[in-house]
Design a binder for these strands. Structure first.
Length: 560
RNA sequence: UGGCCUAUGGUGUAAUUGGCAACACAGCUGGUUUUGGUCCAGUCGUUCUAGGUUCGAGUCCUAGUAGGCCAACCA
């Protein structure tokens, strides 16, 4: 897909319009501004791809800026995790910034506003201020402290900074308009007193700036041209612009805030609060649990950075509410993994097959391709012996013509091996099939070129040699929630929709070559799906996570 | 009883800015295949409603309807 032929999203249209109106391409600059109070999720990935994608498209720098104005919730641990995730996605930021780097400049500007009579210290309780704020349909009323003298404001603000007042005792507010239909303009708080150590500035400050006061000014300091955020900040734009008006100097870039709709993924939640709740309640095993929609969870699950980038590109960006079906994400995973993942054989639900005419004690090494989609991936050898495992679902005593697998009296090919025929089977006392006896055609070996090997049999099965197979733990995942939109149901808590079967742990048998697999390696278990090696893997225990299953038209047929 | 935003197939996003509504996913039919995968071909199906402007409206205007957001010393 060439860049030129790709249609533009509405943000790109805005930028193109600015460029046409004389904006210099050199002045374009973007930023990704996470608050370090949680782990990044698939929604952030979309925002990251948007901002960094713009940087690539226009050859413009993109800053990674941590919005760290609230020491009560923010931690270094999150900073590190966020940096790792952005890098893993494949993006490079121009400079690493912190809103806290600008605390002094912000303070100086605040003093300037006080001197201009545009900000004042309010000494009421938050409850009283909330009452005065009015409601969306009723105007607010002025604070009794609204007309304090400049000198008194200056003195109090200095004292707040010097730590002479308790947390919560005073705030600095912008003096705008208590009757504005936009509640954010009703004298918004710029600073609060907070005696709390900050992850970067430690105890240097005991007043901390609020988001609205900080964000636009930070954009301005960094000379960000287009500041993109989610829709819920649309109402903040008026305030963003008001604060900018107070400090912008001629000749400098005036940042422009534009809003886009956050991306919602079906069958999951993407809100830091709810994700935190999942972690803290123990429903999942941490932020990187493979069922989590966090970037670290997707990584552990086996998603590739490219598949996530493709997903973000495919869903695009707009301003309307949306609920993107998780099947699209899964498609993107398969699309990438199909081209890159080496094929191996693994049996998840083993049924023993004895090839009765195969010499006892003999082992034969069969050559098989590593990836039919990529010839350069080469070949490897896999062992065959008299006893093998196949999937339970691949054998039936009786079946109709649509069943392309093994049935009594029927033939199938063992992938890269021989054609076998089921002769009989053994059952336990409860009637469960526990073994199948087959014969094989020694002349039908794959690739041997004999007429027998060229015979067409409808089914091909994956298998492993019992004697050589490795045992492995396999973790199978299903969607975390059974409802497509668990957190938008009236009067229902999203936790009510948890899928109790989102994790299933089984013992499987895999081909011996997997002994050397390393953590993070991704494979296609042929006819099953894509799997990757989990970090829980140790020298004596191999653990795989199922990333996503192969498309399964048979299962679809069956369920009809 | 206010303000702001949004409305295009089942889902997501486009439409050269007023000129034949398209792309991807999902679904369905076939074909190829030593993975019931991949790949290939085909198919189904769309502009919230009512007016208006115009030769011509998904696009502009008016009204309505539906959905989302806004009253944290959070971001």
């Amino acid at each position: 897909m060439s860049e030129a032929s790709k249609s533009l999203n509405f943000i790109e249209h805005i930028i193109e319009e600015d460029l046409k109106n004389g904006y210099s391409k050199q002045d374009l600059r973007f930023r990704f501004p996470p608050e370090p109070n949680g782990y990044l999720h698939i929604g952030h990935a979309s925002s990251i791809c948007l901002n960094f994608g713009l940087g690539i498209r226009y050859n413009a720098p993109v800053n990674l800026r941590f919005d760290d104005t609230n020491p009560a919730k923010e931690e270094q641990e999150y900073v590190d995790a966020i940096k790792r995730d952005v890098e893993w996605l494949g993006f490079k930021w121009d400079t690493e910034r912190y809103a806290s780097d600008y605390f002094q400049q912000l303070y100086d500007w605040a003093v300037m506003l006080i001197k201009e009579g545009k900000a004042y210290v309010d000494s009421q309780s938050s409850e009283d201020m909330a009452v005065q704020k009015g409601t969306p349909t009723q105007a607010g009323s002025d604070s009794p402290y609204r007309n304090r003298s400049v000198d008194e404001n200056l003195r109090l603000f200095q004292e707040m900074k010097d730590g002479k007042h308790e947390s919560g005792s005073h705030v600095l507010r912008a003096k705008i308009d208590m009757a504005s239909p936009n509640m954010l303009m009703r004298d918004p708080i710029m600073y609060r007193v907070l005696h709390k150590a900050h992850h970067r500035t430690n105890t240097d400050w005991c007043i901390y700036p609020m988001y609205d006061w900080t964000h636009g000014e930070s954009d301005y300091i960094e000379q960000v041209s287009h500041s993109l955020c989610t829709l819920e900040f649309a109402m903040h734009r008026e305030l963003y612009d008001w604060f900018l008006d107070q400090v912008v100097e001629p000749g400098k870039i005036r940042p422009k805030q534009r809003e886009f709709a956050r991306r919602n993924l079906s069958h999951t939640v993407v809100s830091k609060r709810k994700l935190l709740q999942l972690v803290e309640s123990g429903v999942v095993n941490g932020w990187d649990d493979p069922r989590m929609p966090t970037i670290s969870g997707l990584r552990r699950r086996g998603y590739t950075p490219r598949s996530i980038r493709n997903f973000a590109d495919t869903i695009g960006i707009a301003k309307r509410e949306n609920l993107i079906d998780v099947s699209l994400l899964e498609f993107c995973a398969r699309e990438d993994l199909n081209k890159t993942a080496p094929r191996v054989m693994g049996v998840l639900n083993p049924l023993k097959v004895v090839i009765t005419n195969y010499p006892e004690g003999e082992t034969e090494w069969l050559e098989t391709e590593n990836n039919p989609e990529d010839e350069s991936a080469g070949t490897r050898e896999i062992p065959l012996s008299r006893e093998i495992f196949i999937e339970k679902e691949d054998f039936r005593e009786e079946a109709n013509r649509k069943f392309f697998r093994l049935k009594l009296g029927g033939e199938v090919r063992l992938k890269s091996g021989y054609i076998i025929k089921a002769e009989s089977c053994t059952k336990d006392t409860e009637g469960n099939i526990i073994e199948v006896q087959c014969t094989y055609d020694p002349k039908s070996k794959s690739g041997s070129g004999t007429p027998e090997s060229l015979r067409k049999v409808k089914g091909t099965l994956h298998w492993v040699s019992c004697q050589h197979a490795l045992r492995a733990e396999v973790r199978l995942y299903d969607r975390l929630f059974s409802h497509e939109s668990p957190d938008t149901q009236k009067d229902k808590d999203f936790m009510e929709f948890l899928n109790p079967e989102s994790l299933q742990i089984i013992e499987a048998y895999v081909e011996p070559g997997l002994k050397n697999a390393k953590v993070g390696d991704r494979f296609q278990f042929q006819r099953i799906g894509y799997f990757c090696v989990d970090p829980d893997t140790s020298d004596d225990k191999l653990v795989f996570n199922k990333t996503v299953g192969l498309r399964d038209t048979w299962a679809k047929l069956e369920s009809k």
